[in-house]
Design a protein around this nucleic acid. Structure first.
Lengths: 202, 202
DNA sequence: CCTACCGATCGGTAGG
DNA sequence: CCTACCGATCGGTAGG
């Protein structure tokens, strides 16, 4: 407990811990962010770091939620008013690619944790799956709207398209994170357009 | 040193250690395979595990080479006699997707380590990059051969195609590892064909 | 390739 | 949110 602090102070401390955990996890992986490393980084005691969350795993889950929320706020929220369909889906991907290339890596973080925990059943893997499943649901809804609006050929395999869009985002993630290729966002944007823009036959 | 063992025995021990390290790293990540875990799994002492390699990092590098060699032997070697071009490139991807769906995961392992170490400069990241760069070189050579044989339109952006093929393999990896979707290899194969098969205009 | 051991660090708790 | 502390495990080494 923190008897000297108000509820607002406690929430601010929690937010600081989540922010640094996210930043360190991008480098070291979620499992690599030890309580000790985090305590030193924050200039706090280990007990102070774990306290607000209970256990390291609860902290992990809170960081995943924080990353998902940042991603939603930065990539999806600005498009809330636009009309569903290929146009908004292309812009959503462009926003993601720009977000990747910035120094804020919530999306890359989720992809990295997906790879880190894909063979380890448990609440962390479940939470990452849920984050990806929410994105998939968004993509499929946009594709269905596009199909209804005849922006895509009527026989389009939407699941196939969703799979290929996922591929482009993962390749973009690798292009940014592993290769530091500055052309990645543009290349990924072109790939999305190749997939979603109907081929006009001459 | 192991004064009671012949050189052949020493090599067999080394191979056993590498085999188990690879299997455990698929689950726990490369950093998650501690010397103690490995020693218990192998029924050996920690000194016996580290000895043949010197340090844990040398063991890591040896495992990366082992994975790259297995991948080469299982996916690329069988296609050595075929003619370069889109046909062989499609078959190489199909072989990779089938390999993913098997219980042998050297390819997935390399992708996982790429994500695990992409923000950690050092020899491990360098080695993973080299493995991916070798695959990229193969892909680009096939694409150039395809272009020379007019299997692709003359204005094809080969780097763009290489990027999109990388995306398909990463999406396939996630489909198998995170989602356990049995349709993944077929779906990924279709994606590769959509990309490499020239669109015949009516 | 084993035993025995090293200092450092792990996640976490008791108590304030 | 801190100090002080717990047993367990970390990577690695000395010596055989």
């Amino acid at each position: 407990m923190s008897p000297r602090k108000s509820a607002a102070d406690a929430a601010a401390t929690r937010a600081r811990i989540l922010d640094r955990t996210l930043a360190l996890a991008v480098v070291h992986g979620l499992e690599g962010v030890t309580i000790g490393l985090l305590a030193e980084d924050l200039g706090m005691s280990k007990a102070g770091v774990v306290g607000p969350f209970g256990t390291k795993e609860e902290l992990h889950l809170a960081v995943l939620d924080e990353a998902a929320e940042r991603f939603r706020a930065e990539v999806l929220a600005p498009l809330a008013g636009a009309r569903p369909g290929t146009g908004r889906l292309v812009r959503a991907h462009d926003a993601w690619f720009a977000y990747m290339a910035s120094d804020r890596h919530a999306g890359c973080f989720l992809a990295a944790v997906a790879a880190e925990f894909d063979a380890r059943p448990g609440p962390v893997r479940d939470r990452v799956r849920e984050a990806f499943a929410r994105w998939d649901a968004f993509v499929l809804a946009e594709l269905r709207a596009a199909l209804d609006a005849a922006e895509l050929p009527p026989d389009t395999d939407l699941d196939q398209l969703r799979f290929e869009l996922r591929g482009i985002t993962l390749a973009a993630d690798q292009g940014v994170q592993l290769w530091h290729d500055p052309e990645t966002p543009a290349r990924a944007g072109r790939a999305v357009r190749r997939l979603l823009t109907p081929r006009r036959l001459p």
